[in-house]
Every structure is written in C-alpha cells, then in structure tokens.
Design a protein around this nucleic acid. Structure first.
Lengths: 104, 104
DNA sequence: TATATTTAGTTACATAAAGTAACTTAGTTA
DNA sequence: TAACTAAGTTACTTTATGTAACTAAATATA
C-alpha cells in the first residue's frame, strides 16, 4: 500500500462529490434555495438520506440551513458561496453527458 | 414521488461519476495508460473493487483494456476519447478543492 | 522437476452505507 | 378532538464496500 501521491484536497473533494446524492442535491440547489420536501420530490431521494446529506453538506460549508419562523415554520436550504462555486463543475458534467451519453 | 425533471443523461453521468473510486481511477488514468497494480497502489483501492470498476468503466466506453502478449503478459488500462473528455471536469474539481478546501 | 514469484482476477465472508417504512414533533386546519 | 403537513428520526432490510485468501498463467530459481 504505497498510498496515493494524490493531493489530499483533491481527494477530499472527490470524497464529498462522489458520495451518492450529493451531486444531485447541489445541482438542484443551483436553481435557488429550496425546502426539504421540494428537493426530495425533484431528485427522488428518501427523507432519511436527504436529512443526512444536508447535514453533511452544511458541516462542509456547502449548504446553509435557514429557518423562517412563519406559520407553519419554513425551512430552506441554500448553497453558500463555496457551494455556488461548484456551478462550473456541474455545467461540465452536463456538457459531457450531452456530448458522450446516449439519448436514452 | 414526482421523480425528477432532471435530464436523464445528466443523471446517468452523475451516477457513473459518483460511484466510489471512479473519479480517482479516471483522474489517475489522465496521466497515461496504466496497469492494474499501478492504479491499485496509487489510489489505495482493493483489487476486488478495482477489477469491478474497470469492468464497469470499460462497459461505459470510458476505459479501454489492452492486452500485450509479452512475457509475462502485460495488461494496461487507458482512457478512451470519452474518458479523456472528462479532463476539464477533473481540472474543475482540482481548482475548486484548491480554492475552497483547507490545506489539511 | 519441483518450488516460488508475479500479475490479474475471483470467491467468501464481515462491515458499512443506502433503501424502506413507520413513527415523532410541532403547529394548522376542519 | 381529529386529521394534516413538513421536517426529522428510528428500526429494520438490502446492497455496496472492505479484507483476505484463493486461482490461473507464465517465469524464474533451486
């Protein structure tokens, strides 16, 4: 086990991004702040995992949780600057998929 | 379950790329064709999963397996054009990680 | 000839992560 | 009071990953 010459920051980025659902959650939030239930419906993730991922992403500083004490209370998740900085990356994946993946 | 308005090609790309290890394997192969054992040592993946991932990536047309009938036989894995087309994305991840992740 | 080596890959089993569904909490409406 | 909704959590099943031992083929060594 020679163990990677690979840059630890790159490795960490890959670890975050290659966790199931995080990519889709971030992609979804690129279109603006959204509630738990909206994200859930749009990407088809379970409530359990969505809560887990949002908590992780919040800890990484990629997502921010906002509580609006209305009635009923509204909780929204939004990308931070760090999160929005992933937009070009998402655009890249989009482009690659258009160019190299089959229509169906 | 409203189930995604998300483009199926984008979703497929995310599925491929967010599988554990695939990002690191592709990144590693960007520096040129490599043997199974080289990849294994450089990213610290187990033999079982590396074989599985390389087989999947070959099926996706991202990686090509080359057998050189020397003595002993040499087997190398290389990115296809489709695979090399992921280079900008990897560069993007690298940039993001440099800009937004802590040094340690 | 028998033994050990190397590389690629597989098999078998233990552990960790993800999927599913029911439940809790808090506040709202019928 | 009863039913509803949104955000989370808990308990349990299924799938993916990690680990280590094993096979196969060809080579080198004793």
């Amino acid at each position: 086990m020679n163990q990677s010459e690979i840059c630890p920051r790159f490795e960490k980025a890959i670890t975050i991004l290659s966790q199931r659902w995080t990519g889709l959650i971030i992609y979804q939030l690129l279109s603006g702040p959204q509630r738990n239930c909206t994200i859930k419906e749009s990407i088809g993730i379970s409530g359990r995992l969505l809560s887990e991922r949002l908590k992780d992403l919040e800890e990484e500083g990629i997502v921010k949780r906002h509580v609006y004490p209305e009635t009923p209370v509204r909780i929204e998740y939004a990308l931070t600057d760090k999160g929005y900085a992933l937009e070009p990356l998402m655009k890249n994946i989009e482009d690659w998929s258009q160019n190299w993946l089959e229509k169906e």
